[in-house]
Design a protein around this nucleic acid. Structure first.
Length: 931
RNA sequence: GGGCGAAUAGCUCAGCUGGUUAGAGCGCCUGUCUUACACACAGGAUGUCGGGGGUUCGAAUCCCUCUUCGCCCACCA
């Protein structure tokens, strides 16, 4: 027995000691450490079929959380899904590797450390670059990766021996290699252009990091006077009047007749009094605003392009902090009273000034998208600067092709269109950041050499120039954190070392599980990197799951304070309850709604289920005992009872349905077929099927049905024990990926358990060969219906629970021979004594018509008044009349017979026979009762 | 502005290629501590499947349209 703790029995002879409620706290931690100690989660490269082994690999890459992150319910959801898949694959006999790790998270981590410094009254410049980086590294070393520890608490079966970090020495090698290779291929270049700049983080951002937010602003209409005729004015429309100080022209559309006469003349820039030209450019849309655009090349990406086309200057009038200043080529452009003013204040002042001068024609409310920093929400400032870019077009082509041909599938499918749209309209990626925390751009500059020798991209640190031997200095910038993340599927495996065992055994990986938010940041780029560096996609499936939201539909977040701490849930109800609730509640790509104010209710589904499983286990252990149990294969099929046959068939059905819900494992050496494209990964269906089997079928029916057999010594007891253990063993296997702890705890206590074996490593259930005896199964189903009917009658007439009732079953001799031996089962499960008769007895009674020509008649004397029963039967008959009429109409339609599938027609005919038989019986009953 | 998706029980959602009397969980109602489980058991109620039109023998399912929500993208100053 590998499970210590108070709940573990000393010996299997006293299994009754299990508490009535599952106590996760007493078991989970011990089970997890037993798994880890036994190396259950450690993948072995030599066993991979790609490396000469006999198992197909199954690899899931954990989206590396930020190294400073703390587990929230989003991580819980993401990792629960991955763990289900990995545990399932492991049980399927694949060499399963779940690669864990963290991301150094450039801006995010730097912000955290800078905040700490600020609390000490320091800034990063007070420390200097080297000390700051050291301090950040030490901080990460000390407190980073907490989240990985927390993931163990929710049962994550990652291979911790391989834990990676995007800023580790090994991954740094990969980053440099990727940079230099792309540089050598001409796909990385230095560009001078307007990029997104965060004035708070003091760094440039990629297009994806500058998130557009719909914002209520104003549109200002400003009149400019022409230089040569002060009476002739031209009105420009702008949302950013403060950038006026950097204007070098106003543009009109060349086809716009309103302004044709002005093209080539000058207008006077208000406030500064500078003369600037009116230029003609297609960029100006005659339909929008006044049709006149002010051109500020240094502070707007489009204006920059216009400026370039017309050879205009690009004066920079806003500094890196977002304050007005004469930064570059802008001498005399920022009046003293504006210098140092924040852009927002400057806007107010300039608008006021324009108004005072009578040049503000109009100001109207205007909704428009404003870009914000994805890390700190600051309004991003377009800024002219030199940055490193990756040319994306050629990288995107194979990544687009990979999805189109089915090498990679994206689920749910609705994201495919989004992916394709982004890929086909891809823009170059700004990868340089003006930060200190991150991979330094591996480029050195030589002051002595001439271009292109003065810029050297290098895999090794350079001390001196390889061309002239003179001194060099390294680029000050670091790389976008995503420039290391996009290599994750390769770098974690040892790339660029082609001889790496992991790279050979485990690339490409299988399913990537993540949130749609990072489809472009990460997923699309990983696919591009895969094709660019490994010539193959990094995975065959992208599974984009939903978001955790509160009851008002708001995304759970720390700042809103509406989050749920998964560890709270774990300590209250256990990891299994958390996992089951999340998995069962999450349709493909659908959001999960939870109430942070009512954890009890939110997680009732999972908690109740874990307890139910536990109690099924308790019952089994108590009643089966510790004695030897026959293997199911050793049981003579002729010995199997009806209930046994029935539950074994239900098990097979459950296995098939679970397999279908999880779907095909992977396509080997080919693309996904059209049918496979969207098949599987319906984990909620899988969870529901497994739950239904173990709870509604095994516990509610089978267990109840065999209670007496279990208690009566003899051969039949042995059969019942064997079947029960077999069925529950398989149920635990089916459920293990979702609720690993409670299933492991129970599985190890089964009498069939072999010392030292783990459910985590056990095999996935398979459908048994040989069909079940259908007669026996049907007979059991008929008994179930009799029991349900009798219970319904009892409930309807409020028969006291202790009271036994009598009932007649009207049946032919054949049915009677089949069913009568099981009358005691009905007596026990429905407290109803059955008497089999060939004809309905005289007198008023409640009748329930059952399929197969059976009728259950319960004498109502002493139970209820006849009037009430009469009314009930009449209602039932009326409903049946209606349904039967509709059914007959359908059957009478010629088109139905000729066009419907034969099996559908046959099913409908069968139904018609059954219903009309029942109608007849009901009519007779009405006559008897009411007439 | 462009693109995509969704609308089914009080709530969150299944319902896969059109064909049983549209389902589950949670919640609700009634009864029960039936010796595994009250975090349970047994029984029950609730749906013009968003509105309208169409295709079809047959539509929650396919098509059109309207309404309402959501998401992604976008330089319209």
């Amino acid at each position: 027995m590998s499970i210590p703790g108070p709940a573990a029995p000393e010996s299997a002879s006293v299994p009754d000691e299990l508490p009535a409620q599952y106590d996760p706290a007493a078991t989970e931690a011990a089970i997890y450490s037993a798994w880890e100690t036994a190396g259950c989660f450690t993948a072995d490269a030599s066993r991979s079929s790609l490396a000469g082994g006999d198992r197909d690999p199954y690899v899931v890459l954990m989206p590396p959380p930020n190294v400073t992150a703390i587990l929230h319910v989003g991580h819980g959801l993401n990792n629960a899904v991955q763990d289900v898949l990995v545990r399932w694959a492991r049980m399927r006999g694949l060499e399963a590797l779940w690669m864990p790790g963290t991301d150094h998270a450039g801006i995010a981590t730097q912000n955290v450390v800078e905040k700490q410094l600020a609390a000490e009254g320091l800034s990063r410049s007070d420390l200097g670059r080297e000390a700051f980086v050291e301090r950040t590294a030490a901080f990460v070393e000390r407190t980073g990766g907490v989240i990985l520890q927390q993931l163990r608490a929710i049962g994550a079966s990652a291979d911790w021996s391989r834990t990676a970090y995007t800023f580790s020495p090994e991954l740094s090698v990969a980053v440099r290699e990727a940079f230099v290779r792309l540089y050598e291929r001409g796909l990385i270049y230095r560009g001078h252009r307007v990029i997104h700049w965060c004035p708070r983080c003091l760094t440039s951002l990629s297009d994806e990091e500058a998130e557009s937010r719909d914002t209520a602003g104003s549109m200002y209409h400003i009149a400019y006077r022409t230089e040569d005729d002060p009476s002739r004015t031209i009105t420009v429309a702008t949302t950013r009047p403060e950038t006026l100080l950097g204007d070098v022209a106003v543009a009109v559309n060349p086809t716009d007749e309103r302004y044709a006469d002005l093209i080539g003349r000058n207008v006077v820039l208000p406030i500064l009094g500078l003369a600037i030209p009116v230029i003609a450019d297609e960029y100006a849309d005659p339909e929008f605003g006044t049709g006149v655009v002010k051109i500020t090349p240094a502070h707007d990406a489009n204006d920059f392009e216009v400026g370039r086309r017309h050879g205009l200057a690009a004066p920079v009038v806003i500094d890196q902090h977002g304050a007005m200043a004469e930064v570059m080529d802008s001498a005399g452009r920022v009046p003293k009273e504006y210098r140092g003013l924040d852009r927002a204040d400057a806007r107010t002042r300039i608008v006021a000034a324009l108004e005072a001068m009578g040049q503000l024609v109009r100001r109207e409310p205007h909704q428009h998208g404003v870009r914000h920093c994805y890390r700190c929400e600051t309004v991003v400032e377009p800024r002219l600067s030199d940055q490193w870019f990756v040319r994306m077009e050629s990288l995107a082509a194979p990544a687009l092709e990979g999805v189109r041909t089915g090498r990679v599938r994206i689920l749910p499918e609705k994201w495919v269109g989004v992916y394709e749209h982004w890929m086909t309209n891809i823009r170059d990626w700004n990868i340089s950041r003006q930060l200190w925390w991150g991979h330094r751009v591996p480029v050195w500059y030589c002051a002595a050499c001439d271009p292109p020798n003065n810029v050297i991209a290098s895999r090794e640190d350079l001390e001196r120039c390889p061309h002239c031997g003179g001194p060099v200095r390294q680029d000050e910038d670091v790389l976008d954190t995503w420039f290391s993340s996009w290599l994750w599927p390769m770098s974690t495996m040892g790339w660029p070392n082609a001889a790496s065992a992991d790279l050979r055994a485990f690339y490409p990986s299988d399913v990537l599980v993540t949130a749609p938010e990072i489809l472009f940041f990460w997923v699309a780029r990983m696919i591009m990197a895969g094709y660019a560096f490994m010539d193959d996609a990094p995975f065959h499936t992208v599974y984009l799951h939903g978001t955790a939201r509160d009851t008002q539909g708001r995304k759970m977040s720390k700042s809103l304070g509406n989050g749920i701490d998964p560890l709270d849930v774990v300590s209250l109800y256990g990891a299994d309850a958390l996992r089951y609730t999340l998995i069962a509640g999450m349709g493909m790509g659908a959001d999960v709604f939870l109430d942070p104010a009512d954890l009890d209710r939110s997680f009732a589904t999972g908690r109740n289920f874990a307890t139910k499983l536990w109690n099924i286990g308790r019952f089994l252990l108590r009643n089966v005992g510790a004695g030897e149990v026959q293997a199911i294969s050793a049981v003579d099929p002729a010995q199997l009872g009806r209930a046994d046959q029935w539950i074994l068939q239900r098990l097979d059905i459950a296995i098939r349905e679970c397999d279908r819900a999880i779907g095909p494992v992977k396509p080997i050496g080919r693309a996904w077929s059209a049918e496979e494209q969207t098949a599987g990964l319906r984990l909620n269906e899988y969870a529901e099927t497994a739950r239904r089997f173990v709870w509604n079928e095994m516990a509610d029916w089978y267990l109840e049905a065999i209670k007496s057999r279990l208690l009566t010594p003899g051969a039949d007891q042995e059969v019942a024990r064997a079947v029960l253990v077999h069925v529950f063993d398989n149920a635990l296997r089916l459920l293990h990926p979702i609720v690993p702890f409670v299933t492991e705890a129970l599985w190890q206590r089964l009498p069939s358990h072999v010392e030292g074996a783990f459910l985590a490593q056990a095999s996935w259930p398979e459908v048994r060969d040989g069909a079940a005896a259908q007669d026996a199964v049907s007979a059991f189903e008929q008994l179930m219906q009799i029991i349900e009917a009798a219970r319904r009658v009892r409930a309807e007439y409020a028969v006291a629970p202790g009271t036994k009732i009598r009932a007649f079953v009207v049946s032919d001799a054949t049915s009677r021979a089949v069913l009568e031996p099981d009358a005691p089962l009905v007596a026990r499960m429905a407290r109803t004594e059955l008497t089999f008769v060939e004809r309905a007895p005289e007198g008023a009674s409640s009748a329930v018509i059952l399929p197969g020509g059976l009728q259950l008649i319960v004498p109502l004397e002493g139970l209820v008044d006849v009037d009430k029963e009469c009314a009930r039967v009449r209602t039932e008959l009326a409903a049946l009349d209606r349904q039967l009429a509709a059914l007959r109409a359908r059957l009478a339609t010629e088109g139905f017979i000729t066009r419907a599938k034969p099996e559908v027609v046959e099913a409908e005919r069968e139904k018609e026979r059954e219903w009309s038989g029942r109608q007849e019986q009901l009519a007779r009953k009405v006559a008897q009762l009411c007439g």
